[in-house]
């Protein structure tokens, strides 16, 4: 495969990446993570070979970059009322609170939940991005839902 012009790649996948990162790192850090993801993709782009699924490729970069910067920074507690209005979180206050709980999930489960529900990916693709089997991806989502329910009760 010859990589398409980067502008077309960016236009084609920017919304999925933005959606994923909003759910994964939260509204405060989404912009930085978005820049880092695409800069990293751009650096690697000319040497891309045999990459048949550019969407999975860039979402994998987004996941790894966000995990790295998350580790480096350490988790920050952000009071719910200080969060800026985030369109991707829906207009319901209860949805805001729910997505704040998602932020408290461990990395892989959080990524799986965001990819499944906020991005809308099939388990097979989630497995490819998280470098695990389709069944393991499904299991991560199940675990995450269980934890969310516990946190809510």
């Amino acid at each position: 495969m010859r990589p398409p012009p980067f502008q077309a790649f960016l236009d084609g996948h920017r919304e999925e990446v933005y959606r994923f990162l909003t759910g994964f790192v939260g509204p405060h850090d989404v912009d930085d993570a978005f820049q880092e993801t695409f800069l990293s993709a751009l650096r690697a782009y000319p040497s891309l070979r045999n990459e048949t699924n550019l969407k999975s490729w860039v979402l994998t970069i987004a996941y790894r970059k966000a995990m790295d910067s998350h580790r480096g920074r350490g988790r920050r507690a952000v009071p719910v009322e200080d969060l800026p209005e985030q369109p991707s979180r829906g207009s319901h206050a209860e949805d805001h609170a729910l997505w704040d709980l998602v932020q408290a999930l461990p990395g892989k489960q959080r990524a799986a939940v965001v990819q499944r529900y906020a991005v809308g990916l099939p388990y097979k693709e989630i497995g490819a991005i998280l470098d695990c089997t389709e069944e393991a991806a499904r299991q991560n989502v199940r675990e995450a839902l269980k934890k969310l329910k516990e946190m809510m009760s």
Partner: peptide, 15 residues
């Protein structure tokens, strides 16, 4: 409730 996030537009923010 989680799936509602999919229906919210991120077009402008992503652009």
């Amino acid at each position: 409730r989680l799936e509602r996030a999919q229906r919210v537009s991120v077009g402008e923010a992503a652009a």
